[in-house]
Design a protein around this nucleic acid. Structure first.
Length: 216
DNA sequence: CACCAGGCAAGTA
DNA sequence: TACTTGCATGGT
C-alpha cells in the first residue's frame, strides 16, 4: 500500500463524506437483524429487504430460535417482498443453524473471534458469499473490513483505479488503504453505494459526480 | 413496456 | 477452469 494510493483513498472518502454526510447504515437494531438484512438485501433494493424484516418482526422481536421455529415455508412467506424468497429462506435457515451450532446463538461471543476465522466460517455457510460475509463482519459484528460490492467495482474501474480482472480480495486489499477506523469502513461502503446510485449506474451521468477527476 | 437492485450457487462445456 | 443461468419482488 503506497503513500499515494492512501492519499487517493482519503481524498475519495473526504469528497463523499462532504457531499453526502454520514449514512449511518444499520445503527442500533442489533447484530441478528443486521445479519438477516445482509442476506435479504442480496441483489435487491433495500426498501424491499426492509419490508421483509418488518414482516419477520411481526408479533415478536427477532431471535435466532424464534426465526428457526418459523420453518422454511412460513419464513419464505414473510420475506416475500425481498424477492428470491425461497432461496433466501433457505439461506436464512443456514445462517441460523450455523449461529446455533457454532455459537449457541450468542452473537456477543461470536464477535470476539478473529475476523479471518469468522470470515472463513461465514463463507462455509450456504448462501453467504464474500460480500455478505464482509457486510456481516463490518455492520453486525463491528470488525473493520472493507466491503466490496458492484458499485465499488464500477466506481474504481471508471476512475481507472483497478483493472477489469481485479478479484474481490484484490480490490478489497487496495480499497483498505488509508485510515483504518471502524466507522470509516462502515461509512465508506455506504457512501460508495450512494454515489454509485446517483452517478455510476450507466456510462453517462458523470456530470456533478463528487469523484470527478480522481485518479492515481 | 423493459430494466435493474447493497449476490450467490448450480449448471454447462 | 470460465461462462451462463435461475432465483423474484417492487420501483422507475
Amino acid at each position: 500500500m503506497s503513500a499515494k494510493s492512501t492519499q487517493i483513498l482519503d481524498e475519495i472518502y473526504a469528497r463523499l463524506l462532504e457531499r453526502y454526510g454520514p449514512q449511518r447504515w444499520w445503527p442500533g437494531d442489533g447484530p441478528l437483524e443486521v445479519m438477516v438484512g445482509a442476506i435479504l438485501v442480496q441483489n435487491t433494493a433495500w426498501r424491499n429487504a426492509e419490508k421483509a424484516i418488518a414482516n419477520l418482526k411481526r408479533g415478536a422481536a427477532l431471535s435466532v430460535e424464534g426465526l428457526l421455529k418459523l420453518g422454511p415455508s412460513e419464513l419464505a412467506e414473510r420475506i416475500r417482498p425481498a424477492g428470491y424468497f425461497n432461496r433466501k429462506a433457505e439461506r436464512l435457515l443456514s445462517l441460523l443453524r450455523f449461529l446455533m451450532e457454532k455459537y449457541q446463538g450468542d452473537l456477543e461471543r461470536m464477535r470476539s473471534e478473529s475476523s479471518s476465522k469468522l470470515r472463513a466460517e461465514l463463507l462455509e455457510v450456504k448462501g453467504i458469499g464474500p460480500e455478505t460475509a464482509d457486510a456481516i463482519l463490518l455492520y453486525a459484528l463491528g470488525h473493520p473490513v472493507f466491503v466490496v460490492d458492484a458499485y465499488t467495482y464500477r466506481i474504481f474501474r471508471r476512475h481507472a483505479l483497478v483493472s477489469e480482472e481485479t478479484s474481490y480480495e484484490e480490490l478489497q486489499e487496495i480499497a483498505s488503504g488509508g485510515s483504518a477506523e471502524l466507522e470509516r469502513y462502515q461509512e465508506f461502503h455506504a457512501l460508495l453505494v450512494r454515489v454509485g446510485q446517483d452517478y455510476c449506474k450507466t456510462r453517462e451521468e458523470c456530470e456533478g459526480c463528487p469523484l470527478k477527476g480522481v485518479n492515481w
